[in-house]
Design a protein around this nucleic acid. Sequence first.
RNA 1: GGCCCCAUGGUCAAGAGGCCUAAGACGCCGCCCUCUCACGGCGGAAACAGGGGUCCGAAUCCCCUUGGGGCUACCA
Length: 485
Amino acid sequence: MEQVRVRFAPSPTGYLHIGGARTALYNWLFVRQNNGRLVLRIEDTDSERLKEDSVEQILGSLKWLGIDWDEGPTFQSQRQDLYAAAAETLIQSGKAYYCFCTEEELEMEREKQRQEGITVGYSGKCRNLPADEVRKRLQQGLKPVMRLMLPDSGQIIVKDIIRGTVSFKFDQFDDLIIMKSNGLPAYNFACVVDDHAMQISHVIRAEEHLSNTPKQQFIYEALGYEVPKFAHLSMILAPDRSKLSKRHGATSISEFQDLGCLPEAIINYLTLLGWSPPEEQSEIMSPEQTICSFSLEKVSKTAAVYDIQKLIWLNGQYITKYDLEKLTSCAIPFLIREGIISSLEAEQNHYYILPVINLVRERVRTLQELGEACRYFFRDITDYEEKGKEKYFRQKDAETLLSKGKECLAKVENFSVENTELAYRDLMEELKIKGGLIIHPTRLALTGRTSSPGLFDVMALLGKEKCLERLEKAIKFIKAEQDML
RNA sequence: GGCCCCAUGGUCAAGAGGCCUAAGACGCCGCCCUCUCACGGCGGAAACAGGGGUCCGAAUCCCCUUGGGGCUACCA
């Protein structure tokens, strides 16, 4: 069996967005499953649309996602000879010709056609220029484009792994530009020449290229190349079912990274956007599991609207189950960014950070949330949650309760989860009160918040000194508030 | 406009003519667990775009309409 070779071919016009990432991912899943090779190709033949840093951004996002490639990146801008040579053979064999029409002329032609209400397209007027006329104009220094002559009638059949057989009629196609007047290849041509040169066996790409495929297939045939297999993936749409763009919020991989998503969660989410695992298999899958069960044939034909809620949910699942050391190193940049710890503290307090993260991980869904959830473990409390103050600090016994709590904790020797809880339970019994009555104000005193991990877990991790200190602070705070009345 | 693709709950989707009074997941609602918040468990609301065929039988096949998307560039 011939080797499976696929490619991901982004054009460097911006960040890697969610659609491109999914295309890359499906190529990757397919190729890893088939022990093939993935090649990366940068389609940069339109210098006007290039964006600085774009290649670095795209490659960076792919790497971060864990999508690795075997060859490249190769740049189309550096392979001009290849395209020129291929185009030359088509000119020689009479399958392609020079066209001297300027863009202005063509635009006028189209405008006229529109006014007359007839089908807009290239007339083909340079098709039969006499050889010496062509030579003459070339010598004058005119810069023509090269066009491929397409049949005026008949049809062409494209076979697609996902969509089945699709047929197109030739009468709807203009003679296709294969080389632009600046000497660079046009997309459809460069794409074919490269896919052949790179021995691509399966072209897996976005649906927007389906309509280009008949033209490309004709180029393959004109050049005498073997046609690869095609699989066109449906598009990913914004929540309003329109094409994805910047105005739709987070759409680039780097934005999800900034939000605090884990790469595996994004991979998992993207996998599910257009494909679903066999029944009985969980939707939460490691990349390895996905590689095993993935199949191109089962990829959905329907355009998908991405739903950030599910991504965030999945991310929460991953945060809960991730290897703790790994999660911690992912989280630390967020803690630093949010000003919760300094990089120095991050190094020095490693063995404090670990259990803190372990404690809060189950109740957060992004690394950003995780940072926020940790704050009081590293920084003193500057304020109490308003609704907590109202509910717990302004009740009649609050101050007494906290004092009692403080006294009782002061006596605890080994400040463990069990011992602190035992001490508090004894206190509750002694005061004949229900747990919540003292637990809630204590939580507010210790964390500044009305919600947190289990109170005694928090106590044990915070340590005796901090607990007593914060209780004292809360007591003072309550007194101060009362004095103001 | 022409050509092409697509159409199952709010979202992702299972479904390959009878197993469908249509699975699962996210989200939403309720209950349980519980020191709060999460997690978890249980339950609920919620869909085959519309119309014609074909067939004993259609979410599934065909046609039309409608809707969405793509291509129609010297963009990729």
